[in-house]
Design a protein around this nucleic acid. Sequence first.
DNA 1: CGAACGGTTGACAAGGGTCAAGTTCGGTGG
DNA 2: CCACCGAACTTGACCCTTGTCAACCGTTCG
Lengths: 274, 274
Amino acid sequence: MTSLAAAMEHDESLKNAVPINLDRGSRYALYYEILSRHCTLAPHHRERLIRLQQSPRRVAKDDTIIGHGQSTKTLYAVQQGWACSRRVSRDGHGQIIDLYLPGDIVGLRDYQGGRFDEVTMLTDGLLIPVQKPHLEQVTRQNPDLAEALLAVALHQGNIITDRLNNLLGHDAITRLAHFLMELNARLNTFGPDSDRLALPISQQVIGDLLGMTNVHVCRCMSSLQTQRLLRRNAEPRSIQLLNRTALIELSGFAMSYLFTCMRRGQNWRRGATS
Amino acid sequence: MTSLAAAMEHDESLKNAVPINLDRGSRYALYYEILSRHCTLAPHHRERLIRLQQSPRRVAKDDTIIGHGQSTKTLYAVQQGWACSRRVSRDGHGQIIDLYLPGDIVGLRDYQGGRFDEVTMLTDGLLIPVQKPHLEQVTRQNPDLAEALLAVALHQGNIITDRLNNLLGHDAITRLAHFLMELNARLNTFGPDSDRLALPISQQVIGDLLGMTNVHVCRCMSSLQTQRLLRRNAEPRSIQLLNRTALIELSGFAMSYLFTCMRRGQNWRRGATS
DNA sequence: CGAACGGTTGACAAGGGTCAAGTTCGGTGG
DNA sequence: CCACCGAACTTGACCCTTGTCAACCGTTCG
């Protein structure tokens, strides 16, 4: 086992936050894993993408990956840990825009340049950098990869759209429930659908993501626990889903944005088990 | 002047809602116009895209373009009029998700299939259909077009992200001001920056888009008018921006999602005027 | 003319923000 | 081992923004 592999496994607290298949051989093909969620890719694409990847970069909680207003030619795939992007307004107040989980690509929104949100780590983690020009070169030569990249971008857009839908016209408890279901779905995209949900972020951050105060997040969490819908664990920060059916019902969670992923995902899973 | 061209120009109320350059020759190349906002495209791409387009489809207010839950293999580019997509939840309540203006592509979010929001017209309009499989075939043969399509998708994602940012942590007046600035920017992407802003939708629809009630939209509009920031016209429904600087200041509008577009747009504009 | 629709206004209520104090817990230093 | 500290969470009191409900008005259109 290499030192990298060791580093990747020693971090117990993040273990169940890693939906990516880390079986032998796929360990270093993160971009291939991500892209092949949406399109069926050939083996030579796997090799091509592996050559693209730079060496993994271990980052700590609160590290700034991409500074505010700073142009960047680098994309990062999240191997481990959670990250978020913030939009900093003129008054210095930063609003969390987006949440990146293992298997997500950070910086894709800026792929063509022009928009420079700040990206910081919410937990310790491991990122795989790729140079945008290199990726562009590869996608120009491989229509399959270009299509897969488009699929990833559309998928990210669908996740955002789902969050937008969640924020519009729903009250705080519903929004929180929806957020938890979204996390549950994204963290278990291909893995077993565990009832335990890692939640390694503060209520302040959750509040920023949902447009409410940390105080009210706390109240809603308590309410959900009182309704026997979930139970909270303090250390490591996580929650136990006690009644997923009721939570889905309450939140109106649709999972529609996962359809693309699931459909292709089944191909992917068949391929992996064969 | 063909009958189509006549049809396109007789509709006075929508005249200033058309940011697309309708000069001779570009009139029928809507997809080329849209894609070349983001990438510099060659003349043969123009021909290729024109061949892709199906004959324009005139639609009326409240027409359903894409039914709820209905799969579709067709994309539509909006030539004239405004459209929106709605997400219909199980209880039958429909939440407006997205707004499509002239020059936008409808259905791109479902490009890979899997998500079926309802799309309806908010005004009368003119749409240019394209079959997704045909477009896919063309993009697979032309990396430039694939990249341009990716850019359009990312741009749409950026607009949504901006709206998300606007909804999180801003009060109703700020949200309304931001919405108006967004409209102003999107409707005048390349045209002269007019102070008159077409607003051919009801306050109920605006409320749905901003997550507030029609009553409160009315109150906020009145407040903005009282502050001498805008003036409302009843017929045709439009508003006059009296103090754009103050509105931008108030709403924290960034225009960042237009950067990609602007940057390339200047190329595009140079090309058009030469 | 009357129905239908969209906008306007007022009274009232509730969801959620704000502020502040208190609690828990892990880390740090003596 | 204990004392102390800070970060995050919890809880209560209070109040403001916004939703709700309703009446009313102006236009359009059948």
